[in-house]
Design a protein around this nucleic acid. Structure first.
Length: 207
DNA sequence: AGCCAGATTTTCT
DNA sequence: GAAAATCTGGCTA
């Protein structure tokens, strides 16, 4: 077995739901720099959130835009729950539900900076390149072994998947247009931490 | 480094 | 039946 990472036993305080901004765009900004924690039988994996996208109320690109369906029902939960969807026949992606309960808005987690449990991530992703581990929604889900089983989880309490504080201060947050969509694609609702080497998308969106 | 096509299956129309 | 909040490998330069 591999040695534990130096940070493995640090206590991680979950984010409190009341501290999460209700407004979707505000939540997308708020989550930059926070920690995503994944607990599995093999141990803990954590990453720093460095890139998010907001899917706001009345947004035609949002999965909840046309109302609640079997697929997107988690998006309509109270803010701070996981909405995991399957896309392009092979990828999963993780969102944090946002807004008021029943609103159907959310924040897509697009990229992480790997912190703890990188050995397990390398195994799940079948690569050792630290820059290929968790940049992009599909990649980070694969690295952290996130799929439909995690859909609907409360991310504001300790468990298999949750959000937590970070002790490292957040750098400047930059804004750009969203990636990979056709509707309302040019709205400035993608956020990333300036200077991160772990963001996805073309270079000109990551300045 | 950047562009392009192929993979693959769920979901809703 | 078509679209989809993506990733990968192969090509061109």
């Amino acid at each position: 077995m591999r040695p534990k990472t130096p940070h493995a036993n640090k206590s991680l305080r979950p984010l409190r739901r009341k501290d999460l901004p209700i407004d979707t765009e505000s939540l997308a900004r708020y989550l930059i720099g926070k920690t995503l924690v994944r607990e599995t039988a093999r141990g803990r994996m954590t990453g720093r959130i460095v890139e998010t996208e907001a899917y706001v109320l009345g947004d035609a690109a949002g999965h909840g835009f046309k109302g609640e369906t079997q697929r997107n029902r988690s998006l309509f939960l109270e803010r701070g729950h996981a909405y995991v969807y399957f896309i392009y026949g092979m990828h999963y992606a993780l969102n944090v539900s946002s807004g008021e309960k029943g609103e159907g808005t959310g924040v897509l987690i697009r990229a992480l900076e790997p912190i703890e449990g990188t050995a397990q991530m390398e195994k799940n992703r079948r690569t050792k390149n630290p820059h290929e581990l968790t940049k992009g929604p599909g990649r980070l889900a694969q690295a952290l072994k996130i799929d439909k089983k995690e859909d609907g989880i409360d991310l504001c309490k300790k468990g298999p998947l949750y959000l937590a504080e970070s002790k490292i201060p957040t750098n400047e947050i930059k804004v750009s247009k969203r990636i990979g969509i056709t509707k309302e694609a040019d709205r400035p609702l993608r956020f990333h931490e300036k200077g991160s080497q772990h963001t996805s998308g073309p270079k000109h969106l990551n300045r």
